[in-house]
Amino acid sequence: MIDLRSDTVTRPTEAMLESMREATFGDDSRDGDPTVIRLEAMAAERMGKEAGAFMPSGTMANLVAMLTHAQRGGEVLLEQGSHTLNAELGGIAGVAGLFYRGLPGHRGAMDLDALREALRPTLRNQMGTALVWMENTHNRAGGAVLPLDHMRSVHALAGERGVPVHLDGARIFNAAAALRTEARTLAQYADSVCFCVSKGLSAPVGSVLCGSKAFIERARAYRRMVGGNMRQAGPLAAAGIVALETMVDRLGEDHRTARRLAEGFHRIDASLVDPREVETNLVRVELRKSGRRAIEWSASLKEKGVLVAPCDAYALRFVTHRHIGDAEVDAAVSAFASLWDGR
C-alpha cells in the first residue's frame, strides 16, 4: 500500500530505535527524566523559548496551552479553518471552557481587519479576548505557510491589547523550510508554540509545548490534569531527540514530492489542484467536478493500493513523507488517472 493519509504514518528510523533502547527510565512526572529534560531543552532552544514540556500529542499540547493562557469564559480568536476548531473534538469549549470566534481568512491567514475588530476587553457585560491563535503550516488550507509579515502583524495587534498569542506549529519545521528560515523565526511571533515530532520528523509519539519558564511550569499542572504525564517517557523522548537532530533538514524532499504529485494531478485535470499553491508536504485535491464524494474516491483508491483521507465532502488530502519517493508518487497519480478517466 502507498500510504498518503498523513505523515503520522512514518516509522521510526533505526537510529531512533537504538536511542530508545539506550534511553533513561526516570519518572517524568516526579523527579523528571534526563532524556525528557534534554528533549524539552532542545525543543525550547529550537523555538527560541525558555522552556518546554513534552506531551503525548499535538491535540493535548494545544489544549494545555488554552488552559494555561486563558480563564474559563474568555474568547479565543482564530482563523475559521483552524485544526483546533475542526479536528480536535471541541476541547476548546468542552474542556477548556472557552468561547471562540472563527475569523475569515485566506489560505489560513486570518483577516487582520476582522481580528482588529474582534479584539475586545473584559467589561461588565462581556468576556474579553483571552487568546489569539495561529496555525503554521495550515492543515485545512493544504499545508499553506503563513507569511512572516502576517504573523508579525497578528502578534502586534494582540500585543497592543495585552492578549497572548499561541502558535499551533505541528508542522512548523515544514513552514520554516518553505520560508528558508529557522523555526524560531516563526515562533518569535507567539508567546507559546507547540510542534510534533511524530509527523514528518518520524518519531513514533509526541509533541512539545514551549514558552516562558513560568508558562511551562503552569502548563505542567494542566498536563497532569488532562492525563498527559507519561511516567517513564525517556524512550519516547529519545526518538524525539534523534528526530530533531537528523530529520529536519530532509523535509524539503517531502515538499518536492508533494509538488511532483500536484503536477501529476494537474496534468490529469487542471481543476484538481494548482501546483503553485503547494508550499509544503500537503496536497489538497478538489473533486467536485467528478460528481463523486471524497469518501467514494478514498475507497476506490484503496482498491488500487493507495491510501488517502478525505478532508472535505469533495476534497482529498494527500500527505508526502519520507516513505514516499518518486515511484510512489507516480504510481498514485497513475491510479488516480485510471479512476478519473473511468468516472
Score class of each variant (00 low, 15 high):
34 P>Y: 10
9 V>L: 07
19 S>N: 09
227 G>L: 08
190 A>S: 02
139 N>G: 01
56 P>E: 04
336 F>C: 04
104 P>S: 13
328 E>H: 11
297 W>P: 06
302 K>T: 11
220 R>P: 01
231 R>P: 00
74 G>R: 14
250 R>A: 07
88 E>G: 00
150 H>D: 08
235 P>A: 02
335 A>Q: 04
32 G>P: 02
110 M>A: 13
29 S>N: 11
41 A>S: 13
69 H>R: 05
180 R>A: 12
148 L>H: 08
292 R>Q: 11
155 H>Q: 03
6 S>L: 07
99 F>R: 15
129 T>W: 08
313 A>K: 15
178 A>P: 02
108 G>I: 10
287 L>S: 04
135 E>Y: 08
342 G>V: 12
8 T>G: 13
269 D>Q: 12
51 A>D: 12
236 L>Y: 05
18 E>A: 14
304 K>F: 05
65 A>C: 08
41 A>C: 03
229 N>H: 11
232 Q>S: 08
132 V>D: 03
89 L>G: 01
185 T>K: 08
174 N>I: 03
314 Y>D: 15
219 A>T: 08
131 L>Y: 04
130 A>W: 09
259 R>E: 06
144 A>G: 01
73 G>I: 12
131 L>I: 12
251 L>W: 04
90 G>L: 09
165 V>T: 02
298 S>Q: 14
306 V>K: 07
320 T>V: 06
223 R>I: 02
312 D>A: 15
234 G>F: 03
87 A>G: 05
146 L>Y: 06
5 R>Q: 15
98 L>V: 10
243 A>R: 09
42 M>Q: 12
309 A>V: 12
190 A>N: 01
126 Q>M: 12
309 A>T: 13
241 I>H: 06
253 E>F: 05
31 D>Q: 13
30 R>D: 10
8 T>E: 15
285 V>W: 06
214 A>E: 14
73 G>T: 13
276 R>M: 02
218 R>T: 07
205 V>Q: 09
97 G>V: 03
64 V>W: 13
275 P>Y: 10
151 M>Q: 14
251 L>K: 08
52 G>K: 00
40 E>P: 00
